[in-house]
Design a protein around this nucleic acid. Structure first.
Length: 366
DNA sequence: AAGTCGGGGGA
DNA sequence: TCCCCAGACTT
């Protein structure tokens, strides 16, 4: 027996947890069946994302891309559109890459061997364990934030759950709990417990089906666990963006590059403004240098603040008009507001889009 | 091991 | 405000 588990009656723990799960579990779209593709998509969407946020995205995604083939052959623009607003966009680009491999190398069948499935793009240790256990009933641990929180408390483990080493410790513990149960049920039950009862703050210990097994509860330290080092505050970036119109009234949008922040999403042309520089000056120089454009920059029409996990954008939006020829507009498109729905924008630039739509609607009344 | 990569909602 | 969420990838 693993040393961390010697004081736990594993069999009784399993019974108590699974009984609770049977009559408490939520009906979620990805629990309709155990189809591996559906489970996989749901697990990618659920990374760092709450269940309630995911549900509408999942339903839409399954409507548009019901099978691995549908996703593999889908237009990248439509795939990005399906993910618009969900964040961590590399998830969906990796997913499409991986699904292409499944179609080409595995005949469209999601591999059930750990070695094969884990090698797919975007499939890390958690996702591999989750899909293999939930779809294929493999006794694999699926250690996410919920699992580390629950078992930190059950076993009174005080390691920092932000460290990779700690996740491995839990992965070493979990196999004992996966004996003599349906792995699909057990793994989901722990996550459900973490989501509904064993919450980060004010855990509902009085309602907890495994409270009698909980070492943290016995010692009254459940609120202190799990241990997690807090990360530093995000740094702010000053930006200038432009709603740039041509003589036809079309607006210029730019597609971001393959890598980095918000990769492959569309945006209004923008540039970082170093401290002590005037935004209009930096902006017109940027447009001239980047696109070979002569523009007339108007006044500031909007301020947008957008907070990322590690970064803050303070965007001042200007309106502007092209007065000369636009020489180099690679990765750009002139679009009308009606066409905007075809492109995926980050939320920060959706805010700019919304104001433009309001202004256009107002014009209609004048 | 530490940084990067989104966005939202709960307390 | 702060925290963190069914994490993976890059450096």
């Amino acid at each position: 027996m693993h040393q961390d588990v010697e004081n736990i009656d594993v069999s009784k723990f399993q019974d108590n947890l699974l009984d609770w799960y049977q009559h408490t579990k939520r009906e979620l779209p990805w629990r309709k069946n155990q189809d591996a593709y559906r489970v996989w998509v749901s697990e990618i969407m659920l990374q760092q994302t709450k269940v309630d946020t995911v549900i509408p995205y999942f339903n839409q995604f399954m409507e548009w891309f019901p099978t691995p083939e549908d996703l593999a052959y889908a237009d990248e623009e439509k795939v990005m559109k399906a993910w618009e607003g969900l964040g961590y966009y590399s998830r969906v680009r990796n997913l499409q890459t991986a699904v292409k491999e499944v179609v080409e190398e595995y005949g469209g069948e999601v591999p059930s061997e750990k070695k094969h499935f884990s090698s797919l793009k975007g499939v890390g240790p958690y996702t591999a364990g989750a899909v293999l256990s939930i779809a294929y009933e493999k006794p694999e641990p699926a250690v996410d934030g919920n699992v580390m929180r629950v078992f930190s408390r059950i076993l009174n483990i005080t390691d920092d759950i932000g460290k990779a080493k700690t996740r491995k410790r839990f992965e070493a513990i979990l196999p004992e709990f996966l004996e003599d149960v349906r792995p699909s049920e057990f793994n989901q039950a722990v996550m459900e417990l973490g989501a509904l009862i064993c919450t980060p703050k004010s855990p509902g210990c009085l309602l907890c089906p495994v409270q009698q097994h909980c070492e943290a509860r016995k010692q009254g330290v459940q609120e202190e666990l799990p241990i997690k080092e807090k990360k530093k505050a995000p740094t702010a970036k000053e930006m200038a963006a432009v709603v740039l119109k041509n003589e036809k009234g079309q607006i210029l949008i730019h597609q971001r590059g393959e890598k980095g922040l918000l990769a492959r999403l569309w945006e209004f042309p923008n540039v970082e403004v170093p401290a002590k520089h005037s935004r209009p000056d930096v902006l017109s120089e940027f447009l001239s240098k980047e696109y070979g454009m002569t523009v007339e920059v108007g006044s500031s029409i909007q301020k947008v603040q957008h907070v990322f996990s590690h970064l803050i954008w303070n965007i001042t939006v200007f309106e502007a008009w092209v007065t000369g020829a636009a020489e180099r507009i690679e990765d750009c498109k002139w679009m009308t507001l009606e066409e905007a729905g075809h492109y995926a924008f980050p939320v920060s630039h959706q805010k700019i889009l919304e104001l433009q739509k309001e202004r256009e609607a107002d014009d209609g009344w004048i």
